[in-house]
């Protein structure tokens, strides 16, 4: 790691002002940040630590029927949270509880998980330059070894969004709050991700110095349930190769509402409203789920090394739909 100075803010606005400076980078637990600094891919000259604000930002609390997840709540906290015990919130517990390893989950924060840099091996190598890293002229994965890269929704860069938690939060229709220089803003979570995930676009829409403070899970009606499933090469340690989070509301055996979000297959967590719509008004059945899964991947454009992803991804969608209607 190159040397850096380390800032200990006392308040959110101090953190926000410090993080706005050129060369500054916010750090939560630092699992992704320290990794990037060790690779010398990120040369921050100042790290602004959010951990001193843990007392205020690390709680998970029910407000009404909804739940507020503080930005610094850990994946382990989410996986075991009593406030998230309801079947409606299962996707959150499941996605957090199988991410990474127990050691990582004990420190990794919710915001850090959603905002971690893409795991592309070209992007993260200090020996290589690419367009998304802003030091090269093209996406190296587009023509290189792209076995873990996008099959959907990509433009000129085929990185995938690596977060376990993001698809689950999106499927549940969450909002997020931020603080920038004393101003608090609350928006729907989809606004956190670029609508056109170009190579030169950031992976999220936060402004310099803008701090994510919480995710808000909305109140869930009776009969609401959610689930998260993923495919991976190893049972532990590994990021997903494909992932799906689903939420349904079931009344009298019929699906009344549905949402479906894919992870690890596109540069952003990918909402699939057309596939979800096919479920509404129907009774759960394997035949229905197979058709919805096909719909979710209908416009897939696999690259040279990831032809397996639509096949495996469809199986994961079918599985998550069975899980959520079981």
């Amino acid at each position: 790691m190159r040397p850096f100075s380390y800032i200990v803010p006392r308040t959110l606005s101090e953190a926000s002002i410090a993080a706005k400076k050129p060369g500054a980078l916010l750090k939560a637990a630092g699992i992704d940040v320290v990794d990037r600094m060790k690779e010398r891919k990120h040369d921050a000259t100042e790290l602004v630590s959010l951990l001193p604000l843990k007392d205020r930002l690390a709680t998970i609390a029910s407000d009404g029927l909804g739940v507020r997840i503080g930005a610094l709540a850990t994946l382990a906290q989410i996986a075991d949270s009593k406030d998230l015990a309801n079947a409606a919130f299962a996707a959150l517990r499941e996605s957090a509880g199988i991410a990474a390893t127990p050691q990582v989950r004990n420190r990794a924060t919710a915001a850090g998980n959603v905002l971690q840099l893409a795991r592309c091996w070209y992007l993260r190598s200090s020996d290589l330059q690419c367009l998304h890293g802003r030091d090269g002229t093209s996406c190296l994965a587009m023509v290189g070894d792209n076995r873990y890269h996008s099959v959907l929704g990509y433009l000129d860069c085929v990185r995938v969004h690596p977060s376990n938690l993001a698809p689950a939060l999106l499927a549940l229709g969450c909002d997020y709050s931020t603080e920038l220089a004393g101003k608090t803003t609350r928006r729907p979570l989809r606004d956190l991700f670029p609508t056109e995930p170009k190579a030169e676009a950031d992976e999220h829409t936060l402004l310099p110095g803008e701090i994510l403070t919480a995710f808000h899970v909305p109140p869930q009606p009776m009969g609401a349930r959610s689930a998260y499933r993923e495919s991976r090469e190893k049972l532990s340690f590994d990021w997903a190769t494909t992932a799906a989070a689903a939420r349904v509301v079931i009344e009298g055996g019929v699906i009344k509402e549905a949402s479906l979000v894919l992870g690890a297959v596109a540069p952003v967590p990918l909402d699939r409203p057309d596939a979800a719509k096919m479920l509404v008004g129907e009774k759960p059945s394997d035949e229905l789920f197979v058709r919805a899964a096909q719909r979710a991947f209908v416009d897939a454009r696999p690259l040279s090394h990831n032809g397996y992803k639509p096949q495996v991804g469809m199986a994961v969608v079918r599985e998550v739909l069975h899980a959520v209607t079981r």
Partner: peptide, 27 residues
Amino acid sequence: CDRGACGGCTVHVDGLPVNACLMLALD
């Protein structure tokens, strides 16, 4: 590995196992 990918550096911090290689000493 020095990257959170092997667990060889596992210690307890406030009673929980963590990767000491990915935690700054200041933290």
